[in-house]
Every structure is written in structure tokens, then in C-alpha cells.
Computed example of a mutant assay.
Amino acid sequence: MSALTHSRLYLQRLGYDTPPAPTLQTLHDLQLRHVCTFAFESLSTLLRLPVPIDLPSVEQKVLFDGRGGYCYELNQLFLALLQELGFDARGITGRVVMGGPADAHTARTHRLSLVTLDGVRYISDVGFGGMVPSSPLQLDTEAVQATAHEPYRLSFDGQGSYTLWAKVGEEWRGLYVFDLHVQADIDYEIGNWYVSTHPQSPFLGQLKVARLAAGKRHTLNNASYAVHYLDRPSEKRTLNSADELLGLLSETFGIHLPQDARLRASLDGLVLATP
């Protein structure tokens, strides 16, 4: 794996003047700051553009072009930062089950990180869209774990697979199933290829955007926008024009919009297709 070449800029974007020590508190702070700073977004797959996941390309897109990304980009960038700071961390992958049965055997299309601190293992994830955990989660416990947002918990099947659950309202929802198998670059390339190009990918030709803030989550699914609060009901509305979408992407999600002539036409198409 390549090393970060712009870690100073990355840390500055996260609010650090100097590199923090590799402690559990730092991991908590980094993860929360990351999900509140960099948007999860699928503008590239909306436009059916390639999504390169080599580290220099990801650094350019996120740190210099003002964009966000999805798990194969954001979690790779975050892992590289953790490793540079001295954390014992490596990448792992999982199968998304959100929206379906938790025991479904779906494709391996999610990337996250395993971090070990003082012999205790945690998962850290900054690339799971609108339900991304805002805090690292201790792996080897099935207890409910508080985060800066909703409670989460992990379950273990005794055969090597873990399931991540989030409590939404009074309901526990399965998000993804993962294991701790060592992954090579080609494993991420294959998953990313599927997500960014396969006709059955939920990202191809679709717009999915999320960004967290204190006490709330902003999410955008095509032209359907929602703000989910921790202490009161969600606010939801449908956007009625490409201009509304462009303004929201820029102002609320902090995305520097790509100069692509097809963007407005694609956003117009999303508005027309949203009931």
C-alpha cells in the first residue's frame, strides 16, 4: 500500500496543527471529525465515470478537488492516515445487508478498517453512507456501544463472521456482515469494479450522499433529501430542480462540484424520476 503524500493537509482539514498520538481518544476524534468533514458521495458513479482507488488518485479527489467518495476511497484514505500516525491498522471487507435480511449472503462490496490498541480490537469505518458509525466500535463484545450519534452493537456467529447493527428509533437494523480475512489490493479492486460498473450495482447512475453533523445526519438519495435528528423526528423533502440539488451538494454537503457538462442533465433526470 502506498504511503500518504499529503498527510499534513489531511490533518489540517480535520482540525489538527500537529500529528496526534495514536491513542483510542485520537481514533474517536479522527473518526468523528472525518465523517463530519468529508461527504460520502457517488457523483462519479452517477455520471458513470471511472472511480480509481489508487491512493494518489484518492488524495487528489478528496484533498485537492474538494470531493468526497465512497468506502473504497474514504476508508482507504483514512486507513493510510491511521498507519502514518502509528496505529496498528489494516483493511478488511464486508457484505452489505442493510435494507434486507441480516443473514443474506450478498456481494463483498464494503471496505472498513480493523484497529488494535493495547491488545483490544476495534472496527473503524468512515465510508458507510447515511448510517456510518461516528465512533470506533470494540470488536470482541456484543454489548450495546454508544457513539457520537446512534447506539451500535456487534454480533458474532462463532464461525468468523460479525454483523454490525444500528439502533434506529426502537429498531435494530443489520448494516453489514464482515470477517477479519487479510485483503490484498486486488480484493478492493474487484469490489470497487462491481460497485462502480456493474448494471446491478445500487450506485450505478444513482446519487447517494451523506454527511454528519453534531446530533444529526444529512442524507440524499437521488432527489430525496432528509435530515435525521437524534432527539426529534426526521425532516424529509423532495427536491424539485437541478439547481436545488446543486445548491444542496455545495452548501450542505461541502462538495466542490465537478465541471462536467453531463451533471445538470443527470440531476434533471433524477428530479424527473423521483415520485
Rank of each mutant, 00 (worst) to 15 (best):
R33H: 02
P233M: 09
D125N: 09
G205T: 12
T23Q: 04
G68D: 11
L81K: 01
L117Q: 11
I190Q: 12
G215C: 04
Q31K: 05
A213T: 13
N221V: 08
W193G: 15
L4W: 00
S266K: 14
Y10W: 02
G191F: 06
K61N: 09
R232G: 14
S7M: 00
A21V: 00
H181Q: 14
L4H: 06
S57M: 09
A213P: 02
F64D: 15
D103G: 03
A146G: 05
L139S: 12
C36M: 07
G66N: 14
A213H: 04
L117G: 10
E251Q: 15
A214P: 01
R67Y: 06
P19C: 03
V120A: 14
Y188D: 06
L263N: 12
I190Y: 10
Q145G: 12
P199H: 05
L263D: 07
A21W: 00
V227S: 08
V62L: 05
R95A: 13
D103R: 10
A210I: 01
I190F: 12
G269K: 03
E189G: 02
S161T: 15
R8G: 02
P56R: 04
A265Y: 08
T197Q: 06
T93H: 01
L46E: 05
V97L: 05
L212V: 13
T147A: 00
W165Y: 14
F87E: 08
G254F: 00
S161R: 07
A80W: 03
Y72W: 08
V120M: 06
A242P: 05
V144D: 13
E41Y: 00
Q159K: 12
T5K: 07
P136M: 01
L212G: 11
Y16F: 14
G130F: 04
Q83G: 06
S250R: 09
V62H: 08
Q31L: 01
L79T: 11
A21P: 12
L204C: 07
Q60H: 13
A265K: 15
A39E: 05
L24G: 03
I92Q: 06
F178D: 04
A107N: 08
G205A: 09
V120R: 12
P136D: 01
P233A: 06
N240H: 08
T26S: 13
T238I: 12
F156D: 13
A184D: 15
H256Y: 02
T252F: 00
T238L: 10
Q83C: 09
P52C: 12
Q60N: 14
W193D: 15
D187R: 10
R262A: 15
T238A: 11
H105S: 11
V51H: 02
T141E: 04
Q206I: 03
F64K: 09
D260T: 07
L82A: 07
G169W: 00
L220C: 11
L47A: 10
L272F: 01
A223F: 04
V209Q: 00
E73W: 02
L248D: 13
F253Y: 14
T106C: 04
L239T: 14
R67F: 03
G119L: 04
P101N: 11
F40H: 05
L85E: 10
